[in-house]
Amino acid sequence: MTATTLPRRRFRALRLSPLARREALWGYLFLSPWIIGFLVFIFVPMIVTFVFTFTNVNLLQDVPLAFVGLDNWQRLLSDAGTWRSLGVTLKFAALQLPVMIVVPFAVALLLNSPHLRGTGIFRVLFFMPYVVPFVAGVFVWQSMLNSETGWINGALERLGVAEPPNWLNDTGWIYPGLVLLGIWGIGGGVIVNLAGLKSIPSELYDAARVDGAGWWAQLRNVTIPLMSPVIFYSLILSIVEVLQYFLVPLVLKNGNGEPGGATLFYNLYLYKTFYTFQNMSYGSTLAWLLFGITVLVTFFVFRISRRFVYYAGER
């Protein structure tokens, strides 16, 4: 009995009254631009990308289209270039991620300080470089980081550093150099962190202060736990972003990977495979590997987030 009534009840719930059906039709109608766009530009391309990995599509060579089985995937496993470029991306991410989490948080703390005068002006100025087109930002910072004439090394020399680094041409300094070069992108994170800080009820700080908590204890026991959802959100977005990082080295080094292959990022390798060499099939294989890695990493971070993200309220 129950076995037959259950599905029927669910079925009945889906049968809508004429009024509800009209409403649903309007809803789908309004959604249709996105649904069509999703199918044409996202869903079908994803499937096609996957199918491409089993074929030999190359827009430069006039070979007949054929299924090549797992050839592309086998090439992937034995292709040292892929794994080297993945290593480059991960090495950079290890440096870039903490900076993209900590620096916007620290700037937001500064901007949220009750002692700061002229908060509005500082907020605008810290955010402003965020709207600078990144190509312009790359050339500005390339000049700033110039080992001989740049201001960064000029300041370091004045502080007594005898041999300041050759930021963008030394394999040992290129990643810190790229992190500095991307520092103008913190604006979005600053605003999000700042809004998060403003939403923390001040009673909690009052209570902490009554208990004798100083600045550091308040930060550790009130601010950071309550900010953990915001930090988590920034972390996920930053991970997705850093795994796709390649436009800066493409512009900065013309995509040649200098110095010594240190800027041949995974996505740059992918871009060259499909755009410079027009090898759509191997490019697709690389794209699916990136997709897989992104899904795995975000899933992993979501799993461990239960331990460190504190949701006030129902969640």
Binding site: I42, P45, V48, F52, Q244, F274, A287, L290
Partner: peptide
């Protein structure tokens, strides 16, 4: 959260 490269190749083609 979808890396754009996973849809770019067929779209470009």
């Amino acid at each position: 959260f979808l890396p754009s490269m996973v849809t770019l190749i067929p779209t470009y083609t």
